[in-house]
Simulated assay, not measured.
Amino acid sequence: MFRVTAILAGLAMFVLIVEMVLKYAMSNDALAWWSPVHGLIFMAFAVATANLGFKIGWPVGRMVLTILLACIPFVAFVEERRVVREVTPLTT
């Protein structure tokens, strides 16, 4: 669940950036509906992060940091890869 919501939140961030550029730079409200959708996706990501964090014993600060890092474009994808590598058992 974490991996899917992390990737969706990262992609949703890019659509939100496009929406903001359209709205504020071009006075175009074509994607005005996207902001609440992005908010829902991000809340699902926050819940998935907390769920994963509690299951593997992360401190609350680590969960908060993971959520905050997802607010930075591109960093969300890097953090997702790092977390998945950390929690996936080695298969050798």
Rank of each mutant, 00 (worst) to 15 (best):
M1G: 13
F2N: 01
F2R: 01
R3H: 11
V4K: 11
V4W: 10
T5G: 01
A6I: 04
I7K: 02
I7C: 04
A9G: 01
A9P: 00
L11Y: 05
M13P: 00
M13E: 02
F14N: 12
V15H: 03
V15M: 13
V15T: 12
L16Q: 13
V18W: 07
E19F: 02
E19S: 14
E19T: 11
E19G: 01
L22P: 01
L22F: 09
K23A: 12
Y24V: 08
A25K: 10
A25S: 15
S27F: 06
A30K: 05
A32G: 14
W34C: 04
S35Q: 10
P36L: 05
V37Q: 07
V37W: 03
V37M: 13
H38M: 12
G39A: 09
M43W: 07
A44K: 06
A44Y: 03
F45R: 00
F45A: 01
V47N: 03
V47H: 05
V47F: 11
V47G: 09
A48M: 08
T49V: 14
N51F: 04
N51T: 15
L52E: 00
K55Y: 07
K55E: 11
G57D: 05
V60G: 02
V60T: 14
V60A: 14
R62V: 10
R62H: 10
R62N: 05
V64P: 01
L65I: 13
C71Q: 14
P73Q: 10
P73Y: 03
F74I: 11
F74V: 14
V75Y: 04
A76I: 06
A76R: 00
E80S: 07
R81Y: 12
R81N: 14
V83W: 01
V84Y: 12
V84Q: 11
V84K: 09
E86D: 15
E86H: 11
V87T: 13
V87C: 08
P89I: 07
P89V: 12
L90W: 06
T91M: 09
T92S: 15
